[in-house]
Amino acid sequence: MQRTLVLLKPDCVQRGLMGRIISRFEEKGLQIAAMKMLHVSPSMSREHYAEHVEKPFYPSLEEFITSAPVVALAIDGLNVIEVVRGMLGATNGLKAESGTIRGDFSSSRQMNLVHASDSPESAERELKIYFAEGACDYESVAKNFLRAADE
């Protein structure tokens, strides 16, 4: 089992797509361990996107991510980082395949609705930014109907 961070970004919140996107994760059999709506502060943005702060596009990224609330989710599942990133599709919504979240709902490179951690190390670091208080660990009663016992 892995845990990853997913952010439903300001465009997702403003367009009222939160429920539809969360449903896709739940329908896939992934488990939400924590969720909250918040405003990303400029300092949180710099911490989250630390590797991009010195890049020329960073100011517009910070302006966007701090422009409206986001919904942060901690999501658990087998190979969840790879699974979620596959569900999101290509970063640019114009290039994302139909059937992916971005392919179905986005037509922009920046207004691409969602962020997801790209590695176990990123997930650990990003989850601490948004869920310093931790998450709710629990065992779903549906797990026996989602995968075999040896998976």
Rank of each mutant, 00 (worst) to 15 (best):
L88D: 04
I22H: 02
P59L: 09
V114P: 00
D11E: 04
E26M: 00
S98Y: 00
A116V: 12
F145N: 08
R125I: 02
Q2K: 01
L94T: 13
V70F: 12
G16W: 01
D104G: 11
K55R: 14
P10K: 01
R3V: 04
Q2G: 09
P59Q: 08
E82Y: 02
E27Y: 11
I81A: 10
C12I: 08
H115K: 08
P120A: 12
D104P: 09
N144G: 15
G16P: 06
R125M: 00
V80P: 04
A68D: 12
V80E: 08
E82I: 03
H39K: 03
I65K: 01
S67W: 00
T4K: 00
S98Q: 03
F57G: 00
E124P: 01
G77I: 08
G99T: 13
G29D: 02
E62I: 12
E51N: 08
T100K: 03
S98E: 04
F57Q: 00
E139C: 04
K28A: 15
Y58R: 11
S67P: 02
R15C: 10
T4P: 01
L61T: 11
E124H: 15
Y49L: 12
G77D: 08
R15Y: 09
V71E: 13
F145V: 10
D104R: 03
G93D: 13
I32C: 03
R109I: 15
H39F: 12
E47A: 11
D11L: 08
V83G: 08
P69N: 05
F64I: 13
V114K: 01
R24P: 04
A33W: 06
G77W: 11
P120L: 06
M44N: 06
E97Y: 00
L17V: 09
L88G: 04
H39C: 10
L127R: 04
N79R: 14
D150R: 05
H115N: 12
D76A: 14
G16I: 10
S43C: 11
V53P: 15
S60A: 05
M18Y: 00
T66Q: 03
L7I: 06
P59S: 13
N112G: 05
G16L: 08
S23R: 12
S119E: 06
G29C: 06
S108Q: 05
Y138N: 02
N112S: 09
G86Q: 01
D137Y: 14
F64Q: 10
E47G: 04
R102W: 07
E121L: 07
L5E: 01
A116G: 02
Y58N: 11
E54T: 12
